[in-house]
Design a protein around this nucleic acid. Structure first.
Lengths: 335, 335
DNA sequence: CTGAAAGCGCTTACAG
DNA sequence: CTGAAAGCGCTTACAG
């Protein structure tokens, strides 16, 4: 690998001059500039970005830590993030939190250690105080995505999970359903807690039975939904509608129902949350709540961008809300 | 940020000793080691990994470049890669090739410039000669994933796309179908070309009409499949089966069919390629070909691992083959 | 077991 | 417009 020294020797100038030519900082005469670029080509020179970063204390890259590499919307988030990053000429470094608070923290440190200009943090497991203290311990600016965090956690682009769950359930109630089941993971993380609480509250508010209406599935996957629904069919509690904590779960649920000879929506209505691409293509198409992950990511990247350039942030933290997408998986109950 | 100097001053030893204590290289007495660790804690010291990498010329990380951040199996690939990486204590740096040869190259350079120990390359757009010359121009070892490349391209964990397409089509032919349509992207990339060629050859081999049987869809998505199938329904060519170039396309196709009142598999059979998670959960469940992306990634990571440690590679390049997964979307034609 | 010194490949005041 | 020198924060022979 050729270094700046090689090319400085070849051209017969100091490496300071070479550096200036490369970066376009300071004045360099046309002729020497030309000679330098030719030498760079000849030697196939590429600046060592590690050395650059060490010297300047920044790396021209944006770090992302994702709580997990297979959540149902991490693909959309990544896609959007990488598109915006490309426009700004910054590289994106993506890192896995392995769905565990400890790993999430490590990933953040990894990124901070590499002097990323800014870190986009999509965490599910870290507690609010974790986030706040971590934020304090590193100098890299952080922008949180996905959760609704207090101002002390720094910039955050959140989603109103409570509201999303409410409109889904309200839809079912408005259709006339009285026996509604919730299928979703145990309410142990902020997100799962919010969704489940919204469920219970809405039911109670409408004087419907809210107790023992929660069938737990291990995760947010189709498999989880499928198994949980089979479980539900065994216990023989009466129900006419199911609220699934995610579209994936809902799709698993619908499959289990169909395998058991139960028709959706004629016999049982199902609604989900997420509005994944595939949800429009299953049969029946799924009624769900749009989670605007692309718009959220875009917003987060704009903040990140401004932060990276040391600019004033024009549009700071924001809370996004969902929207009900009515399709064909939920109808009035069969009476 | 505390540096190694701060802690060397605090303890009263040279920074060489501190470095040895941190890395566990060389001898350091118990007492000084203890003092050093205490000081590290007190000052909340984290070694600057940029400086470490610059000094040692390695970074203890594995780089991945993905041709695109929304291909249909990049999620599974990433998940598996990050799981293996975690076990080995290496960090994973993921980078987007933006579905374009130029960007793919840039991404590789980015990773090489950061001194990744090894690069996993999943490219769709770069030509074989591109890959070979790029491989020559950087010193970082590369392991290719997904395509079947010549030995001169270095280690490669490939998939036999021709064989996969063949078994899918043969399945349809064996069921008795004579009028088969191919729905997939234009054969412009290595993968799309292979799949389409296999289709044409098999048809000709069985003396079936192979001309004008290709309905083009813009990409590998459900939307693409949906639109292309609507196209197909307009042109009124007779057909009893559809071979879709991916599961996503197949799912879009089935939806278009069902929207048009055509029953799968009673009226039309459909098969895909990929065996995505959701394919078992659509109705009817999709007959497809398993693409063992997890196993392939695991294999690639093992090579990467050995390369990174400078070990001899025990199991080198390998070509994986698909397996037919028979479910409910394809049956004998209705005669 | 420990230290002084050189080096990794850049950048950036400072001086001219 | 250009160069000499110090510095970024580490590691690693070498010498003791």
């Amino acid at each position: 690998m050729a270094t700046i020294n090689d090319i400085s020797k070849m051209v017969g100038v100091s490496k300071a001059t070479v550096s200036r030519a490369i970066n376009g900082t300071g004045q360099v005469s046309k002729e020497t500039k030309k000679a330098i670029f030719e030498a760079m080509d000849a030697l196939n020179f590429r600046p060592n970005s590690l050395a650059q970063a060490l010297a300047t204390n920044k790396s021209n890259s944006i770090g992302i830590v994702l709580s997990d590499f297979d959540g149902n919307y991490f693909g959309r988030l990544l896609k959007q993030a990488s598109q915006t990053a490309e426009k700004t000429g910054k590289q994106l470094i993506v890192t896995d939190g392995h769905n565990c608070a400890k790993r999430e923290k490590e990933a953040i440190h990894f990124l901070a250690d590499r002097k990323c200009d800014v870190i986009i943090l999509y965490t599910r497991k870290m507690s609010v105080s974790d986030i706040i203290s971590l934020k304090r311990s590193i100098s890299t600016p952080i922008v949180n995505v996905g959760r609704d965090l207090p101002a002390s956690a720094g910039y955050t682009v959140g989603f109103d999970h409570t509201h999303a769950a409410q409109i889904a359930i309200t839809h079912l109630i408005d259709l006339g359903h009285k026996d509604i089941i919730y299928i979703g993971p145990e309410p142990t993380t902020p997100t799962t807690r919010l969704r489940f609480q919204a469920f219970e509250e809405k039911l109670e508010q409408h004087q419907l039975v809210a107790q023992d209406r929660h069938i737990i599935c291990p995760d947010f996957t189709v498999y989880g939904g499928y198994d949980a629904c089979q479980q539900l069919l065994k216990v023989k509690v009466p129900f006419s509608a199911i609220f699934a904590a995610s579209d994936d779960i809902a799709i698993g649920v619908m499959k289990a129902l169909s395998d058991a000879g139960i028709k959706v929506p004629e016999d049982v209505s199902v609604v989900g949350i997420d509005n994944q691409e595939k949800s429009a293509f299953v049969t029946p198409s799924l009624t769900t709540v749009e989670l605007p992950i692309k718009a959220m990511t875009l917003h987060a990247m704009q903040i990140a961008q401004e932060l990276a350039e040391g600019k004033q942030v024009t549009n700071g933290s924001k809370l996004f809300t969902g929207e009900l997408i009515v399709r064909h998986s939920a109808t009035p109950p069969n009476t």
